[in-house]
Design a protein around this nucleic acid. Sequence first.
DNA 1: CGGCGTCGATAACACCGGCTTATAGGATGA
DNA 2: TCATCCTATAAGCCGGTGTTATCGACGCCG
Lengths: 317, 317
Amino acid sequence: MIDAAGLRVMRAIADEGSFTAAAASLGYTQPAISQMVRRLEQRTGTVLVERIGRNVRLTEAGLVLARHAGPVLAALDAAEEEVAAIAGLRSGRVRLMAFPSASATLVPRALSLVKQRFPDVSITFTEAEPPESLAALKAGECDLAIAFAYEGTDVARGEEDLDAFEITPLLDDEVRLAVPRQHAVAEQGTVHLGDLAADPWIAGCPRCRGHLVQLADAAGFRPDVAYETEDYVAVMGLVSEGLGVALIPDLILRTVHHSDVVALPMEPASRRTITAVTTPDLGRVPAVRATLDALIESASSQSTAPTTRLPEPTFSI
Amino acid sequence: MIDAAGLRVMRAIADEGSFTAAAASLGYTQPAISQMVRRLEQRTGTVLVERIGRNVRLTEAGLVLARHAGPVLAALDAAEEEVAAIAGLRSGRVRLMAFPSASATLVPRALSLVKQRFPDVSITFTEAEPPESLAALKAGECDLAIAFAYEGTDVARGEEDLDAFEITPLLDDEVRLAVPRQHAVAEQGTVHLGDLAADPWIAGCPRCRGHLVQLADAAGFRPDVAYETEDYVAVMGLVSEGLGVALIPDLILRTVHHSDVVALPMEPASRRTITAVTTPDLGRVPAVRATLDALIESASSQSTAPTTRLPEPTFSI
DNA sequence: CGGCGTCGATAACACCGGCTTATAGGATGA
DNA sequence: TCATCCTATAAGCCGGTGTTATCGACGCCG
């Protein structure tokens, strides 16, 4: 019945003291104000303005409306400003989820970039393996997920809604074979997976284990999984002690390094693709977009260094 | 840019969880909501709603708008209710001005009537003689004035804006001649003003004095004004002591009575009309209208008693 | 005292927001 | 796989809300 425009007009009349001045202050013409007041009067069923000769004065009811204009318009402006802040990246929150090995490498740099560019955008970060993070994304508990898919599979495999997700490739990650330094194959340039059919294996997360089994199957054997751990530091430790061999993505090796472990390229090579996943809607939210851009940048700067030679490890045992 | 309707819609979506339910709760159809959201989104330049499969979820910016809806809509409702209260006489303020002799008679009863009918309407009352009260009315410091005009003159005489005022006759008041009981004319049924040409006169307010001079002029003499006071109690005292004679409106005599004073009808008769004056706009303000009605009622109940015999005085010396 | 400037009211008109109905497309669940 | 429910879109209609043009009235000032 009464809207903000009406209140704005009443306030302008109260402030300016005439319809014409109110119209000027609001950027309207005088008849617009005249009609607006008449509409308000017939809607409220009350006289709002007293026409005294050639100027006007608000009645009690008119003053009531003018008085309410302040708070209402201020609140509307506040809402608008708050939304504008989100749109202008002067505010905003991104709930990011990434799997552990991404958390250690891609994420910190991206977070830093965002923080530097948009100090008021806050990113909350949770570690989660791809299946969980995609579920969280669907559940609305997450805005951006960093997932990975082994060559030939799809990130959202198992999920029917392929176009419910917006998938951005970040990094192409080679999977290597970690063996103890004293292992027979340690000196080879490349290793065939079949060469290690007899070795005990150390498997990581369920998906990684699935990948291992799949590769081994292609190589004609069933791996003897002696240990299972999602902690790559532990994997390296186990390998270094000669307790088994493991598949380790290159990305991990940039962070976790062990002097008694050798990471060899495999033949045939296996790769995984690290992707950022969001929804089409969320992908257009400025803060999410900015984070995604930072992740892309972070990934491209990481992939510029090919990893034949291992870079200086950031974490060493 | 953002209006109350938009906020209402966003809040409904937040509350109901779907466009369709929000539409139902607001009494709209579903496409109306769909379009409203789209408009809001392109106006704010931000994604407000995340379309997840077949239901929707608000983004951070959308939640911001939904969150602001409460205060804004509450304030609007408050404004509306406040105006409705004034329109419905559950509230309201009337600034009444009346000249002294009206204050003593018409006004108290009218105030009582209004108070009884509309307990929440507050009437502030100020004593003022007609020229002042009309000026206050013009100045916006008064909503309703009780004025009087002697026969043949106009309430708003001197004021050019005849139709700037809305004038309601309340009472027809006869002007009588107050003389001491022992005065020579005291036993006459009616008195000619000329019979008292030689007496000292007691005059009241400027306008009353003007009226006296005018009547005396018609009777062929210039009154010897020995005393001037606007206090009719004092007038009665002066008359009772034989210090002079005075014109006194009948209305006064209902309140102020003195056993040693006789109030005689004049020949020719002189009357004054007591009127309520407001502006056309203010006359449509419910509280003012109600007060005016009460005054009319109060006046008609007073005039039903013709004053040949004086009623029991409410104030006696 | 009469003209002129200014203010508000009104009429006529145009535009666009905003709602409706009708319909299509897509997701979910039995 | 079908039924159902949800959202998106198209097309149309109405009314609110703005404009310009004009009038009438008040008030100032020469």
